[in-house]
């Protein structure tokens, strides 16, 4: 079915939406949305609007920061597993296994409650310049999400690095390129192109992991919806709106990654 979609023209795709059963389904969906708008309670919305916008912004900020930092960590993690000496490859593999083998929620709590409860015992930590940050929640959230993304993506990058044809690297070496130049110009770009489709999925998963930080008192959009629920005793409306917000962000993410994928110069051998 996906092939059929890929080969259709925009006109055919527009006609696809006009098939009789789809028109009926869309009408039912529109009726449901209208029913939700008019019969459910939305009077809390103006009061919490500013907070919600801040929450959405914080979720997106968290997503961008942790994916970028996580990717920067994932590149060496993948690289040393393919080409590094064993004393670098083994810890990298162990790191990826541990991160992928335990729930993110528990990693987050281990860092925030576990480490957070240990830090005050050491005077030199309390006196250091980092202490004002270590008392807040967001460094732990950013760290946990970054490590998680690095763990999953490190595994992907390992496969991507290993998948680049040897001939490409040998050709680069034959040109007399130095190792860093090979990595920068040949190996990393090609591995990145290979990893890109998986990267889309991993980034959507990362977005879906961000609401966990609400459990350590960070105020993202999920935490805002929980607050609305607690303060107004309205259960479904905030949750439905929240689901809609995440659907929208996912849609935008997938769209942006498709644009990026379309820029890949040629099909890889």
């Amino acid at each position: 079915m996906s092939e059929a979609i890929l080969t259709t023209t925009p006109r055919q795709r527009a006609l696809g939406w006009l098939q009789p059963h789809r028109v009926v389904l869309i009408a039912i969906a529109a009726a449901l949305v209208l029913a939700a708008v008019f019969t459910m309670r939305w009077d809390w919305l103006p009061k919490y609007f500013d907070l919600a916008v801040q929450g959405v912004w914080r979720t997106i900020w968290l997503l961008i920061v942790t994916t970028l930092l996580g990717f920067v960590l994932a590149v060496p993690l993948g690289l040393v597993q393919v080409t590094g000496p064993w004393w670098l490859a083994a810890p990298a593999r162990a790191f990826c296994t541990v991160i992928r083998g335990t729930p993110l929620l528990l990693q987050l709590w281990l860092l925030y409650y576990g480490l957070g409860s240990l830090f005050p015992q050491f005077p030199w930590i309390r006196e250091s310049f980092l202490w004002p940050y270590l008392r807040q929640a967001w460094p732990y959230g950013v760290l946990a999400l970054t490590l998680s993304y690095a763990g999953y993506e490190g595994e992907v990058m390992r496969g991507a690095f290993a998948g680049v044809p040897r001939g490409q690297l040998e050709a680069a070496r034959a040109f007399g390129m130095r190792r860093w130049t090979i990595l920068r110009r040949i190996w990393l770009p090609q591995a990145f192109y290979r990893a890109l489709p998986t990267l889309t999925g991993e980034t959507v998963l990362q977005l879906k992991a961000t609401p966990l930080v609400a459990t350590i008192t960070m105020v993202d959009i999920y935490a805002v919806s929980s607050r609305v629920r607690q303060e107004t005793f309205i259960t479904y409306e905030p949750l439905l709106l929240l689901a809609l917000v995440y659907l929208t962000i996912t849609g935008i993410l997938v769209f942006l990654f498709r644009k990026l994928e379309a820029r890949i110069p040629a099909r890889l051998g």
């Binding site: 959507v204 977005l207 879906k208 609401p211 999920y222 929240l242 689901a243 995440y246 849609g251």
Partner: peptide
Amino acid sequence: VVRAVPELVLILL
């Protein structure tokens, strides 16, 4: 929808 919305939100809903 299920693959785009966080599990946490789905579980609550």
